[in-house]
């Protein structure tokens, strides 16, 4: 399962604002699971749950942060958790991990937008409220964050 954003004239079809694609087991051809616009501004994820729903984070720094849930067979979300648009004001690449029981997301940003002191948020799912926050404030010579993981991790 993956996602991409492209300009027009993309060889695999238009996907201006965000698509989610899927490589079915044993096959060699990616399929569009969510077409263009349905995953607008996707930043991290997707996770596929046991009921075949898709969970992903759409973000535009300073504008919006949403956790979206799109059920199987649909192209629009059944649930949108709206988080503060100012969670990560430095921009950066959103990075997401889902806890083993699927009840909590862990979110941060990576790359140049994720320097020393960047926050990590634990967000309840499906509630959408922030349950835990802490700052990555060590080591002192940390330049930027590259990824986040949670243990146990969600494995459908």
């Amino acid at each position: 399962m993956g996602w991409f954003v492209s300009d027009n004239n993309y060889p695999y079809g238009p996907c201006v604002s965000g698509c989610i694609t899927e490589l079915p087991a044993g096959q060699s051809k990616w399929q569009i699971r969510l077409p263009d616009l349905a995953a607008n501004s996707i930043g991290a994820g997707p996770f596929v749950t046991t009921d075949d729903s898709l969970l992903f984070w759409t973000a535009l720094s300073g504008r919006f942060n949403y956790i979206e849930t799109v059920p199987a067979g649909r192209h629009y979300p059944a649930r949108v958790n709206q988080l503060s648009p100012n969670l990560f004001t430095t921009g950066g690449n959103p990075s997401l991990a889902l806890s083993g029981d699927g009840s909590e997301f862990w979110m941060t940003v990576t790359g140049l937008g994720g320097p020393l002191g960047t926050s990590v948020y634990g967000v309840n799912y499906p509630g959408g409220d922030i349950a835990t926050t802490f700052a990555v404030d060590s080591p002192d010579d940390l330049i930027f964050i590259m990824g986040i993981g949670v243990s146990p991790s969600y494995l459908p």
Binding site: V120, V136, P139, L142, I143, I145, M146, G149, S151, P152
Partner: peptide, 29 residues
């Protein structure tokens, strides 16, 4: 307890990973 891993860059050729315990009293390195 649940653990959260955060991985980071220290230089072009080195990095590390912090392990946080999400304990009832709050996250702890």
């Amino acid at each position: 307890d649940q653990l959260v891993y955060v991985t980071y860059v220290l230089s072009l050729t080195s990095g590390g990973t912090n392990i946080y315990d999400i304990a009832p009293g709050g996250p702890e390195l």
